[in-house]
Structure formats: structure tokens, C-alpha cells
Design a protein around this nucleic acid. Structure first.
Lengths: 344, 344
DNA sequence: TTTTAGCACTCGAGGTAGTGGAGTGCTAAC
DNA sequence: GTTAGCACTCCACTACCTCGAGTGCTAAAA
């Protein structure tokens, strides 16, 4: 579809534009080493590339900038593996000096590293617990009929929420109930608990415990976990202000507005496939960030994907570097989490 | 110190400037109703006010703007109680339609209301648990020597963290230990737990349990709560972009940078006294926000102050409105929390 | 046929007056 | 003590100009 020369020119233009954020002219390209053609030749090719939709021209007498199609082609076919620089490794090493012993801390730390090293915005979708198995369930009565319900998973996650006892049910009944639930639900995935109760336990419950009808509601309350929407961590919104395309206040505003809506971020980060994923501009299907790209990778615990790491930057993003960084960090983060979850 | 007329003029200028964000000229002031003097008279008074440091002039042929001293005087002596408008009440009402049943949700909701209604940035320092009393303590072993330690307070807060058992200590020993701790620490304020253990329990522990030396470290781990720095909630960073003084990218950047540093915010919100507190410009002692003001109020649970609500805006802030809103919301939030903590 | 040199043309960025208006300070009259 | 009048200041805005980077096209060179 594209001749070797055209690819070479496209590559040169994008590489240059990613650094300079300025339209790239034919002369600039022809002077790059490795390109043995005159500006006029380049001009002809550039006109062709524009016709095919890989390049765009802000106005007649300006150079060319890559179009979305151009970036897509670049990411799919032209990108060469990023070479880590000494500075990168040094920076990574520096960040790794601190000891991490809590999941939250690990997440925050990772977002911060990523945004510092890329200079773009970073988002992490915290791990879901729904696929983890119940380790322990407990009710701590507080006063009157109010209590806290605590679910602990085998990964060490603690989920808590308020519950209210139904009227006229004794504490000992509730204790019995909790014991039963504990006995039967330990080892069951959080997401399947309700199902198991409905299928296997309702008969038994009815026999074992008084006030069955009143208690079903309580059981529902206890097993409620969805209200805990996945937590979102972001970092480096400021960094975007350093990108020339966000020197514009309006653009920055719409970006920040977006970032305050957790649901949108969750939407953006929900993985469509495993591995590193690149969405460019309108591929994101979100008007506000038409000229941004998002690179995501999911991280795993013991091989199971549980959350996502994402970097959001202008379409003119250093794809090579970000992809390699995010890939590395997602893997590293997975490893860290897995050890955290295994104890030391 | 100031004549009545000077006060009147200062008030008029500040009121005008708060709305327009433009230097106020003598003509504008003299045309305000209630002011019966000509522009020339006003000009004389304005020159005096400037000499005394209450006003400033951006350049010779511009109007006057209030200085920090001017705002301070305004807040201390000229501010009249804010009259709630119909829109305010309507907006408040609208926001109150949703049901809240988790503390976090209540906090987030309150920040969001406050930032929406003021159009400034809002910050809330989450409640501390250190003054609450222990209700229940529990260890859930996960695998090998790793476990989760869970502390529940009488207010229903759950604090959790990872602990590692010392080598060569049996589970039953640990169980004994936990029972003992539970028995003796229930009802003790979180912040005093370690003290109580040191004073009252060390002897008993030594007698009761084997491996005393090994266990002290575990006890320390279990009772560790400080690592949980107070959580900070913010909302409405975007709103600042609507303020003319933050149309400047650099300024916005330094503000956002600040907001990503939790410790700084905690510092800013740590209350110096109870009640609504206004800090103007350099009174904040933070270079980055020399031209901002912060209004804070602490909220309480059953009368005990446990956290802070704060609004950050340009020095040209609608003090009256914000003070009245923050006062109202802090009280309302306290009430909500108190009921949340009491059960239904 | 492909590449390159040359040239006229385009268009935006940035610099330089010039103008209008809002506001001031001062003086002198009320 | 207050106000009208007036000269003066300074910013914001516009219009205009110039410069230079970059283009497309044509015709010559390879």
C-alpha cells in the first residue's frame, strides 16, 4: 500500500512531530540523515501521503502533521521497540527505593512513577475483588440495630459496609446466621456468593434459623458488594499543562471535567482485550478528548486480570516510550501485587 | 480608624470587584445607589484609602482594586450576613434528594455540592479515627504467616492492614493474644491503645502467652494505625479555570501541582481554631497560592471535631456567600455523620 | 521515468504605529 | 468640604506591514 520511501517519510515526520509539536516541512525531512532525497521529492511524496489521508496540513503554507490514520499506521507498522535510556533506568531505580506494603500505596506509587516518566496523565483502575474468594465474613454490632459487615477475601482485601438488623431478631440468631454463612461461603468467589446462597442455603437457612423472611433482607445487605464501585487513581493532570496542545484553557478544562467523573474513567479503562492497547483520537469515542490517545494495559494477580493501567496524552504522544513503559510497569505491578497477596 | 464614608466606599469597591474582577473607578462607585457623592470626592477618598494600604492601583490610569489588607478589613468589619437566594435554596434542595448511606459517599457528595455552589475548589479532610474507641479487633490469617488485622471503632469505622506473624508462633497462641487484646482494649480510644498495652498489659501478656518477645512486634503491627494518613477529598479544580485569575496556564499549573500533594492539603486544612476560619493571600504562608484565600470550617461527630471542610478561591472571593455556605454545610455534614454513626 | 532546482505564491506570526476610552490628579470654583 | 473641569496617562484594540517558512508547479537534469 505504501512504498518503502513513503513509510520512511511518514516515520520521519511523525518522529519529528512527536518531539517538536510543530508542523514538519519537506526541507526538515530531507535533511534528516538516512533520507537521501531532496526537499522537492519529499514534497511530492508528502502530497501523496496527504491525499491518502496519512498527513494533514493546518494551512497552505505550513508543513504537514500526522492525521489519526497516520498515527494508527505508525503504531501498527512503523513503531520500533523503544530503547531504554540510561536515564530511564536510573529514574526507575530511584523510584523503587521505597518499601511498599499496602496495595493502595503500590497503586499510588505506580501512577506517580508513570506520570513522572511519561509526562502524561496516568490512571489506574483499582483491583476488583469480585473474582476473589471469601476468606472470612463477620458482623460487628455497634449499637441498637446497626452494625458493620466485614468481608475478607483470600487476597487480603477487606470490604466493609453498614447494615441494619431487622426488628425483633435476637443477636444470637444473627450469630447463628453469620456462622452458617461463614461455613458455607468460605472459598466462594465474592461474585457468586448470592447465587450460592439462593441455590444451596435457602432451605437450610429456613430450617436452621427463626425469622427466615426477615433475615433474607439482612443476608442481602451483608453480601452487598457492588455499591463499592471500583476505585480510580489518577496522577499527573498537571503534566498535561506542559503539553503545547493543552496550553489552551478551554481544552484543559474539558479534560479536567472529564477526570472528575469517575464513571467515565472506569469506562475508558475497562479493558477490551489483554495486553497493551492503543486507542487514538476518535477511536476513543469521546468527544471531549478527540485529540488524545489512550494507552492501556491490564495488570494481573496470579495471572488473573483484575485492573487496568492507563496513560492519556495528546495524539502526538511518544507511543514507543509509553507502550514500553506501561508494559513494563503493568508487569512489574502485577508481580508486586502477587507478592503482596502472598505475604512476604 | 476609617471614617464611615471610607468604609462605605471600600465596601462598594470590594463588592463590585468581587463580581467584576475589574479595577473599580471612582465614577462607578459614585453612581452606586446609597452613595451620594461625586466622583471627585470618591477619588479623594480612594487616594486616602490607597495611602492607608486598603486599595491598590494596577497602573496609573486604572481604577482601584482591594489589597489584602482591604479584604481582611472587609471580612472582619464590613461583611454583612449573606442572604440566601431562592436559587441557593433550590439548588441545595436538589442536591439533597439522594440517599446517602456511606461516610465516603457523604463526603464526596458534600465536596461536590460545595464546589458547585461556590464555583471554587473544595477540599475535605476525612474524619480521623484516632479519637474513636475500639469496638472490635480481629486477625484473619490468609496464608503462611500473612494475615489481615482489622480494627472496628464504635463509630463503625473499619481500619485494616497487613501483618506478618513472627516465625514459630502457633495460630492458637495468636488467637489467645487477640482475645486478650480484644478483652482489654475494647472501649479504649484508638490513639491510646498502645499506651494501655504498655501500661496495663505487658505483665499479663508475659504471663499468659509464650514467645512474649516475638509477640510484642506483632502487637505493634496490629495496633499500627498511623500509616493511614487522613484521606483528602477534593472537587472542582475545574471551576477555578472559570475564574479570570486562573485563565493563566502557569498559575493553574502551580495550583494543580499543589493539589496533587496530599500532605500540603492536610497542612492547609489542619484547623487552628474552631468555627469558620478565613485566611487571605499571604496569611496562608504558601507561596504558590499567594493570591488565593482559604475558608475552612471543621465538622464534628457528636460534638467532637474530626475533620475539616475547606474552600479555596482567588482572594477576590465571594466571602459572604462562601462563609455562609461552608458554615451551613459543615453543620449539616456533622449532623449527617452523627446520624450515620448512630445507625438509622 | 524519476529526481531536483528554481520560482512565484500563500499564509501566519510577530512587530509597530495609531486611536479611543476609562480613569486619574490637580485646580479652582461653589 | 464638595464638586466641576481639564489636562494627562496608560492600556486595550485594531490595522497594517514585514518576514520567513513552506508549498505547488514547471522545467531541466539524471
Amino acid at each position: 500500500m505504501l512504498t518503502e520511501r513513503q513509510k520512511q517519510i511518514l516515520l520521519a515526520i511523525i518522529d519529528d512531530y512527536i518531539i517538536s509539536a510543530e508542523p514538519v516541512g519537506s526541507r526538515t525531512v530531507s535533511k534528516k540523515k538516512g533520507v537521501g532525497y531532496s526537499a522537492a521529492t519529499i514534497r511530492n511524496e508528502m502530497a501523496d501521503l496527504e491525499e491518502m489521508g496519512f498527513l494533514e496540513q493546518p494551512h497552505t503554507s505550513a508543513g504537514r502533521i500526522p492525521s489519526q490514520k497516520g498515527y494508527r499506521f505508525y503504531v501498527d507498522h512503523l513503531l520500533t521497540p523503544y530503547m531504554w535510556t540510561k536515564e530511564d533506568l536510573l529514574a526507575l531505580h530511584k523510584h523503587y527505593s521505597m518499601r511498599i506494603d499496602r496495595v493502595e500505596q503500590a497503586i499510588q506509587h505506580t501512577t506517580s512513577i508513570l506520570s513522572k516518566m511519561t509526562n502524561y496523565m496516568t490512571m489506574i483502575l483499582g483491583p476488583t475483588i469480585s473474582e476473589n474468594n471469601l476468606k472470612h465474613l463477620q458482623i460487628v454490632p455497634l449499637f441498637d440495630r446497626s452494625a458493620v459487615s466485614i468481608l475478607v477475601t483470600d487476597t487480603g482485601h477487606v470490604h466493609q459496609h453498614r447494615v441494619t438488623f431487622p426488628e425483633g431478631v435476637s443477636l444470637s440468631t444473627i450469630e447463628k446466621l453469620v456462622n452458617l454463612l461463614n461455613h458455607r461461603l468460605t472459598g466462594v468467589p465474592i461474585s457468586k456468593m448470592k447465587e450460592v446462597v439462593a441455590r444451596e442455603l435457602s432451605d437450610e437457612l429456613m430450617r436452621y434459623v427463626d425469622h427466615y423472611e426477615k433475615l433474607t433482607e439482612l443476608v442481602d445487605q451483608i453480601l452487598q458488594t457492588e455499591q463499592d464501585t471500583q476505585r480510580v487513581y489518577t496522577s499527573g493532570a498537571t503534566r498535561m499543562l506542559e503539553q503545547p496542545e493543552f496550553r489552551d484553557v478551554e481544552k484543559m478544562k474539558s479534560l479536567l471535567d472529564l477526570m472528575e467523573k469517575n464513571e467515565t474513567i472506569i469506562q475508558l479503562l475497562r479493558p477490551e482485550s489483554s495486553g497493551v492497547q492503543v486507542r487514538i483520537g476518535q477511536e476513543i469515542r469521546l468527544e471531549e478528548i478527540n485529540d488524545c490517545s489512550i494507552i492501556t494495559a491490564s495488570y494481573t494477580i496470579h495471572g488473573e486480570p483484575v485492573g487496568t493501567i492507563g496513560v492519556l496524552g495528546p495524539t502526538r504522544m511518544d507511543y514507543g516510550r509509553v507502550i514500553s513503559l506501561i508494559d513494563f510497569l503493568a508487569k512489574d505491578f502485577s508481580k508486586r501485587l502477587s507478592t503482596l497477596y502472598d505475604g512476604e
